[in-house]
Design a protein around this nucleic acid. Structure first.
Lengths: 361, 361
DNA sequence: CTGAAAGCGCTTACAG
DNA sequence: CTGAAAGCGCTTACAG
């Protein structure tokens, strides 16, 4: 607040009443002032251009009506990631609806003490930890901090704190089971980086589906990328080198699937005719890829909304919660998956294709 | 802050010193205490788990070390828009680097008074108005508010406040001029919604380039969409109905370009062989479209960074500023634009294509 | 080197 | 219906 900003005291003086009366009319505590007093106060507010200082209010009420979103600020390009921004969008929508505002608390390092210093400082009423990395020290913080809190996304299932997440394991499991029902048995997997809890879970889902169907993947069936398009292309290239005749490949995220698509295109293999492809996330680019990518969508915005709702509940009830809300993923069927043809890939009739290079698989 | 939270007074008592001394050691005001006192205070802080209440501090220092990002919260799906989230990402990066945190102030309606109430309340040191709509009442607010402020994105050039933006008009002008140099003369335009300042500017750039080249577009050359893929497809379909033999079409954003691509594909026209296509924004999907889209990229993250920097300068210098920083757009050349062949489209030799339907243009 | 006191701008019992 | 006083948790001259 700049120097000359009018305060409640100025209003009181101008209206010729006490500051107590000013707060009372400002907060509509009826019956404590006459209509005439009310008008005088309001006029003074108007004339002075007075706006209440929320900081002072927060200090005495011990409530800031602000939600904190805690993020690890690794390398800075955080909100450029649609996952985080969509999560934030959901949180914001719910917060605004309930009369809260949002503070972004970007931690320069995932240090519990650092987190406490920035959250238990009176500036927020509660915190949402946004998609922590696998085994982040912040999970430790979140389990024992002194303010209402919930984890949104990437939450270990044994977390002793409220959290909201998608069922990574279960939705990949279901999708791979579906591929198997379509006749696919040789199904490769392009895995994600090991520092993501979600990547691990998706891999588990893949393995469980195969196991239940009595299919035993060798290490040649799995290649690991880092979630980037390039790494997906490279992983696919390595997969092609071992030539075990896959009829389908499932990717831990869409960007790697897009890279894998590129790798197949380069060697003249067609999706889905030669190989079916399944992604995860349903990023915007998935719908406009060629072919449009069949993928698993997670309700990221709903996760954000629910996390905010859970947090506000804790704040307003005064009851800490350790509730876990797990959303199912949704299979988005587009054009990159078809049933497995009985014949091995070599003899599959390929549709017309204009690429010059063409290899046997 | 929950009830039992230790305060500076508790620390003072425990250490057997005054609160003045506690603040002094906490803020490292050297020379005002003995080494032994310092240790006693620090030990008390440690034992009590004391963390300073920033709200109280803000109240007396009149500084919150928080930047406010003001957005119009229309329909809620705000940060789902990569433009906003990327802008926010840049702002966040610069803020964190300079020791500030971010508060998101989502306004339920673009009302100047509502904006003042939420910004001039002591909770932020300055505000960034993020990409206001064309003629938003908030521009009015930003020109006369009492705290440091800057507009990031979509800023009218005559704004009497600091702002950072891309040169929409100039970059479309330059790109269209380039198309003309490539031999294109019949260049259609799929315009954006009229409530976006940027959409208007891009249209102006298109018109200026044509005008300078002595080309006179009729109203048939321009169709308006609403920035969605679907609207782009429909606009292209309308453009095709009048059949004026365009050799190129420039779109006000990438999503509409992607829709236009779809419309052309449906009628069997090839991009870029039959028609060149230029987008704007360089969204992620542009790079993976087929063909990869030639487009104009605006440095959204840099706009955010610069806006935050300008704001922090104002805050720390106490000097309001009305500086305008305008970044050029960057032409990203991919595969959707080629030189115009001398022959009219009808006789253009088309490359191999597998689509069954094929129409004369 | 140390501390008592005033004050930041509000709210909240409480007394009248 | 109205107001004086205490207090929220800090910081800042200022006096010693």
């Amino acid at each position: 607040m700049p120097e000359g900003t009018p305060t409640i005291k100025d209003v009181a003086e101008r209206a010729g009443v006490s500051v107590t009366t000013v707060t009372n009319v400002l907060h509509g505590r009826g019956g404590r002032f006459s209509e005439e007093t009310r008008e005088r106060v309001l006029r003074a507010v108007e004339e002075l251009g007075y706006r209440p200082n929320q900081i002072a209010r927060s200090l005495v009420r011990r409530r800031s009506h602000t939600l904190g979103v805690v993020v690890e600020h690794f390398r800075g390009a955080l909100l450029g990631n649609p996952y985080y921004s969509t999560l934030l969008d959901g949180i914001l929508a719910e917060a605004v609806q309930s009369g809260y505002q949002l503070k972004i608390i970007a931690l320069e390092r995932p240090d519990p003490e650092h987190a406490r210093l920035n959250t238990e400082d009176g500036s927020i009423d509660g915190a949402i930890l946004a998609a922590p990395l696998h085994q982040s020290p912040l999970l430790h913080w979140v389990e024992r901090c002194n303010i209402p809190r919930v984890v949104a996304g990437s939450s270990p299932r044994d977390l002793r704190a409220a959290c909201v997440d998608v069922d990574d394991e279960g939705s990949v499991y279901a999708a791979v089971k579906w591929l198997i029902e379509l006749g696919h048995r040789r199904i490769a997997f392009i895995a994600g980086p090991t520092n993501y809890w979600s990547a691990k879970q998706r891999e588990q889902g893949y393995l469980r589906a195969l196991r239940e169907a009595g299919i035993h993947p060798t290490e040649h069936w799995i290649r690991r990328g880092n979630y980037s398009t390039l790494s997906g292309r490279q992983a696919m290239e390595m997969l092609l080198q071992v030539r075990p005749g896959f009829s389908a490949v499932v990717c831990c995220n869409d960007w790697m699937a897009l890279g894998a698509l590129e790798a197949l295109r380069r060697v003249g293999l067609l999706v889905p005719e030669d190989i079916s492809m399944l992604g995860f996330d349903d990023v915007e680019a998935a719908a406009v890829a060629s072919p449009p990518l069949t993928t698993i969508r997670q309700p990221v915005r709903d996760i954000g909304i629910t996390a905010a709702r859970l947090l506000i509940q804790q704040i307003e009830s005064g009851q800490p919660s350790t509730e876990h809300v797990i959303f199912p993923g949704e299979l988005i069927q587009r054009d990159s998956v078809i049933p497995c043809s009985a014949e091995p890939p070599d003899s599959v009739k390929r549709s017309q294709h204009t690429r010059p290079r063409r290899r046997r698989y």
